[in-house]
Design a protein around this nucleic acid. Structure first.
Lengths: 216, 216
DNA sequence: TGACAAATTAACCTTTTGGTACATTCTGTT
DNA sequence: AACAGAATGTACCAAAAGGTTAATTTGTCA
């Protein structure tokens, strides 16, 4: 239903990377919006400049596409954290910065969190297919290990802090804030999801995390 | 493939409540297992003693069935909390008990948490259809308000504690522990999901929540 | 006991949906 | 310029999936 009266009837450029990126971007939105099973291949191609054929050409099938979408989501999430340069700050400050940043970053990128939530609904089966995702995610842990070592050495951190537990705690806060917003705000109002409410939650997260690691 | 050589060829008892309960129980499992869109009506009836028609007879359509399943899940979750009798304990102890109980209860009932997560993927649209769920959930907040009032009056709670924020915090911990287990344990190992790990997380939750409310 | 409503079964239907076959165009290489 | 292989568009398909129709059985009450 579009264009070209005078133009040539058929003409297209080859652009594999562009097509792949386009599909991936659209698929990210559609999967995040409707879940894996709820997402429709036809809906994805409709929003794309390409044709259905290309999805199967480049990604194999719906699961393959979802796996790539998920991979890209994890990559961007961890990439953000990686740029924080936590080594430059005193341990307690660095931890505070990490927690606050994670809170904001997840809030600014709800699609990625939704994709991870969706992946959990499906028992992580696509994640298991990925080679690259586990590597990405080990970075955050080694970063926290380093941070804890410094804090313990310095005497500001408890001796028994657990980097993994720390990551778990921060994730729990920041992920829940996105993943359960719909039901929570419907049941209890959206006071906590206004800008002011979110600032309070972020402050709460930071102080809780700091309290949890601080030497007594 | 069952029964009756010598028995009458066809014979069934009318049992509306039994049929409804059967369908609801099976649907709970199937929806929790596969999500809303991923769940198959045929799979549900297959595991049921009834026939497909009954789902539509009693629940209208797939969404109607899911709405009832979700309603039942919320009812059981809140029913547990309601039986805690928090008034009988000093505020700090009551809060600790609530947090620890919620942690355990969610852990023992992952299906309900999964259903809520699934509902969030679908933007809470089934929840909005329910009359009863919001009532159920207001109980926990009024309970916490009462608790906070006592704590503040007694001087053990900070003056500015927010019951809703408290509930949010406890929920975040306990829900994340279930809803993101698949991806988290795949990426970071399942140390935190062993019995010992879970006990540590529960202890962390309790101490964090207490620290957050305690007057300084 | 007979009639009427409620409950239930079994077979069927329509649309949707993920996926494919096949033809066509583009582009780098010789 | 011609060939080969990669990239893309179009039309199509078979199966799955939600939902429905129609007929049968069971319970109830006058």
């Amino acid at each position: 239903m579009k264009r070209n009266e005078g133009e040539r009837k058929s003409s297209w450029k080859q652009d594999p990377e562009g097509v792949k990126a386009d599909i991936l971007a659209v698929a990210t939105s559609v999967f995040a919006e409707s879940g894996f099973s709820g997402a429709r291949i036809d809906e994805i191609i409709r929003r794309t400049k390409s044709s259905k054929r290309m999805i199967y050409y480049y990604f194999g099938d719906k699961s393959g596409l979802y796996a790539k979408v998920l991979e890209a989501a994890y990559a961007r999430l961890r990439k953000g954290e990686g740029q924080l340069d936590l080594q430059a700050l005193p341990p307690l400050d660095a931890l505070a910065k990490l927690a606050a940043f994670t809170f904001d970053f997840h809030r600014e990128n709800p699609e990625y969190i939704r994709l991870i939530t969706i992946e959990n609904i499906h028992h992580g089966k696509h994640l298991k297919q990925s080679e690259t995702i586990p590597k990405l995610n080990s970075q955050i842990i080694t970063g926290l290990e380093e941070l804890c070592r410094r804090g313990i050495g310095e005497g500001t951190f408890r001796e028994d802090v657990d980097p993994l537990e720390l990551h778990w705690t921060i994730s729990a806060f920041c992920v829940f804030n996105i993943s359960n917003r719909a039901t929570f705000s419907h049941l209890y109002g959206d006071d906590l999801f206004t800008d002011a409410g979110q600032e309070r939650l972020r402050a709460r997260l930071v102080s809780m995390v700091l309290d949890a690691v601080r030497a007594s």
